[in-house]
Computed example of a mutant assay.
Amino acid sequence: MKSAEVFRTFLKLGVTSFGGPVAHLGYFRDELVARRKWVTEQQYGQLVALCQFLPGPASSQVGFALGLIRGGYVGALAAWVAFTLPSALLLVLFAIGAVSLDGPIGQGLMVGLKAVAVAVVAHAVWGMAKNLTPDLKRVLIGVVAIALALFVPGNFGQLAAIAVGIIAGLIWCRDLLTQDAEALSLRVSKRVGIGAMIVFVVLLAGLPFLAAFTANGWVGVTDAFYRAGALVFGGGHVVLPLLQGEPVIAEAVTQEQFLAGYGAAQAVPGPLFTFAAYLGFEMAAGSTAWLLAAVALVAVFVPVMLLLVAALPFWNAVRNNKLIRAAMAGANASVVGILTAALITPVITSGITGIAPLVIALSCFLLLIFAKLPAWAVVLIGAIAGLLVGMTEFGVAWT
């Protein structure tokens, strides 16, 4: 069954996709576009550009959409569960104290995994650039996007880069496109899309009233995490101040607990939104903590997936409009620029901190380019190399 294939594939990605949302897009591209060919490079570019516009974590939304394309609604659910569960479980174990990221072994492991993320993102940028910026005009759009993403503070730079790419595409790219935009093989009707939007609005508007009327703690938690997920523009990191500002969370989780969980979330694979599971677990005690962690995790993801389902069927309806195609060509070029900017910082700046991680990153990049190893194998090699670095550099005895 395709849904089983989707689950296995995304579980592997969920365990190995270190490095944050940009790195996730690189892992997806390597595994699902280049190797498995679930979608073409152009279709993948469409998905990434579309998800950049929607609230929520773009990498999780792209993964959900890829699961939907491959295996329908069951495949979409399988992709989300498999990609999300490993990091959520690791963060809950961190909250219990069963997982520690300190010490020479942990530090060395992180050196290797961050270096691998550099190689994977660089490989993805290289492959996407060849397909999405094939001419001088789109190269220039990508260069402008790099500058905006690097020098405009916060996530506004990424949104500005996409907006500039759309405008430039409308001006420059209308005569460059000789082929129609490829349709996304979706099983979502417009009726379902409209229904998803209605459910999104009803929950966003209705949960606060229900929480106030019933004074039920479970409804209050669901409302807090749902609202935080619904209002996140610009990536997973933006959800942190929204979660921190929710009274029901602030009253139950100390500042020290919040910051400790945030630090752990940076080190685990998978989406940053799984930080919600950590917070939910910290807000309760005993067996209730596990249930509240699950509620928080689902609540923070539901709104962004509803918005994606609402948008996808209408995208296929307009994709071959000449202006839409030109705008998307510019937006795709901007996506390449945004990924390049993210490769520069924070991926390289945080991942290449010395000669050893530089050697690991270059070696892993060459393995991806020439040996064509799958990303999971390169992650394993990088992790082992990082462990060896940790044993020597951070003081673990060999005997």
Rank of each mutant, 00 (worst) to 15 (best):
F258L: 15
P134G: 12
R35D: 05
L132T: 08
V309R: 14
T392F: 11
A205R: 06
V62E: 04
L13F: 09
G97F: 00
K372V: 02
A276D: 10
A385G: 10
V300W: 05
A211W: 06
L101C: 03
M1G: 15
V125L: 10
G20A: 01
A212G: 04
V336D: 11
A260C: 05
D180F: 01
G195W: 02
D175C: 00
P104L: 15
M110D: 00
I105P: 00
I198C: 12
A115F: 03
Y73R: 14
A375V: 14
V347I: 14
L292F: 03
G382E: 07
K137T: 04
V188T: 13
W290E: 00
P134T: 05
G75D: 07
T288F: 03
Q179V: 00
L343N: 12
Q52D: 03
S87V: 03
A383C: 13
G337Q: 10
A296T: 08
S100A: 15
C51Y: 11
Q107G: 14
G71C: 08
S350P: 00
A129R: 11
A58K: 03
L279R: 13
A163F: 12
V199D: 06
A293M: 09
V298K: 12
G97Q: 00
Q43S: 07
L366F: 15
A122Y: 05
F314R: 02
E251S: 07
G142K: 03
V81F: 10
A267T: 10
P57H: 02
D102Y: 10
L307H: 13
F64W: 09
M305Q: 14
N131P: 01
A342Q: 11
A264E: 02
F314T: 00
L150K: 12
L109Q: 08
E251M: 02
R8K: 13
Q266R: 13
T274F: 04
F225Y: 14
A115S: 08
L297R: 09
A115R: 11
L312Q: 11
I167L: 15
H237C: 02
A205Y: 09
Y278E: 10
G106T: 11
L177Y: 04
R29S: 10
M328C: 03
L25R: 10
G235Q: 11
L66Q: 13
G20F: 00
G270S: 03
